[in-house]
Amino acid sequence: MQIKVENISFNYRHNQVLEDVSFEIQTGDYVGIIGPNGGGKTTLLKLMTGLLKAQHGHISIFGMDPRKARAHGKIGYVPQRIVQSNIQCPATVEEIVASGRIAKSSDGKVIEAAMKDADVEQFRTRSIESLSGGERQRVFIARALASEPIILILDEPTTGVDLKAGRNFYALLKHLNKEHKLTIIIVSHDIEAVAKEVNMVLCLNRKLVSTCKHEDLKANTEEILKALYGPDKNFIHHQHA
């Protein structure tokens, strides 16, 4: 068992964001988390990365507390706002990727490999602010890979990224999952893309509404989404080319 989430509840003051959420993730899983805004997706990721501490319940990563797991460099993380944020730091791509290996000894070969895997080698001397959203996305993936993580956690990674860059991005994640056996957990609003890519979907709206395999989500999309977003919502399908 790689990740075990047991009866997690979390409140921001009097606002309950997560209630009694439990699930398990195995090594090599590619997991999508979907749900409405305010449904607790980002909070769940922050609990799994140890950025927040749950008031109730327990999370273990390889049997360790998330704070301990991240100290060992086991978790790669790409937060929601990083791609769109106005980074004031005058840093090159190479410097940013190398900063991902900060808790471990610096290793040029691993940093090179991370840049190669994320296909950002050609930007190495460019400043981050000169790159497009899709390119920045890949830089922060490379940064996460530089720590040689076992789990890669991404929060809304394709927000603000154009369709082509989004497609390339999902292809990169698939490659990392298949070839590098990296466990990937991704929060996304793009249900179609998530359904197409992942092998397990967590439907979250404060509570875990359902946990299903991607085939189940494909077969019962309407039903699951109505349970998640409410019965009065209409869903418009779109296809990723």
Binding site: T49, R70, G73, I82, A91, A98, S99, I102, A103, R143
Partner: peptide
């Protein structure tokens, strides 16, 4: 230097990196 650079880039990322 490396640690301070990492937190200058993003505090949250630096925290998850184990700093």
């Amino acid at each position: 230097y490396r640690q301070l650079f990492a937190i200058s880039l993003d505090e949250e990322l630096a925290t998850v990196s184990g700093l």
